[in-house]
Computed example of a mutant assay.
Amino acid sequence: MPRPKGAKNAKPSRREVASYYAMLRSAADAGDVKAAAELIRLSCSEQPENKRHGV
Results as ranks from 00 to 15, higher is better:
residue 1 M to E: 13
residue 41 R to S: 15
residue 11 K to D: 04
residue 10 A to L: 08
residue 42 L to K: 04
residue 39 L to A: 05
residue 51 K to V: 01
residue 18 A to W: 02
residue 47 Q to I: 14
residue 13 S to I: 00
residue 14 R to L: 11
residue 50 N to E: 12
residue 27 A to F: 09
residue 44 C to V: 06
residue 19 S to W: 05
residue 26 S to N: 06
residue 38 E to G: 03
residue 55 V to S: 04
residue 36 A to F: 05
residue 51 K to W: 13
residue 40 I to H: 03
residue 40 I to F: 01
residue 42 L to Q: 11
residue 55 V to H: 08
residue 22 A to L: 07
residue 29 D to H: 06
residue 28 A to Y: 01
residue 50 N to D: 14
residue 45 S to Q: 14
residue 44 C to M: 15
residue 52 R to E: 02
residue 1 M to P: 11
residue 19 S to N: 06
residue 52 R to H: 04
residue 46 E to R: 10
residue 16 E to K: 04
residue 28 A to C: 05
residue 8 K to D: 13
residue 52 R to F: 05
residue 55 V to L: 12
residue 2 P to A: 06
residue 10 A to G: 07
residue 23 M to E: 07
residue 18 A to I: 03
residue 29 D to Y: 11
residue 25 R to V: 12
residue 48 P to H: 14
residue 45 S to E: 13
residue 52 R to K: 11
residue 35 A to Y: 07
residue 46 E to M: 15
residue 33 V to R: 13
residue 36 A to C: 09
residue 47 Q to H: 09
residue 28 A to N: 02
residue 31 G to Q: 13
residue 8 K to P: 15
residue 21 Y to H: 07
residue 15 R to N: 11
residue 37 A to R: 10
residue 55 V to Y: 10
residue 53 H to Q: 10
residue 38 E to L: 13
residue 6 G to N: 09
residue 16 E to V: 04
residue 29 D to P: 02
residue 28 A to M: 08
residue 16 E to L: 03
residue 44 C to Y: 06
residue 7 A to K: 05
residue 44 C to W: 04
residue 48 P to A: 15
residue 5 K to F: 00
residue 33 V to N: 06
residue 40 I to T: 06
residue 17 V to T: 03
residue 17 V to P: 01
residue 18 A to R: 12
residue 41 R to F: 05
residue 28 A to Q: 03
residue 26 S to L: 13
residue 20 Y to I: 00
residue 46 E to K: 10
residue 33 V to E: 14
residue 47 Q to A: 15
residue 38 E to Q: 14
residue 17 V to H: 00
residue 12 P to W: 00
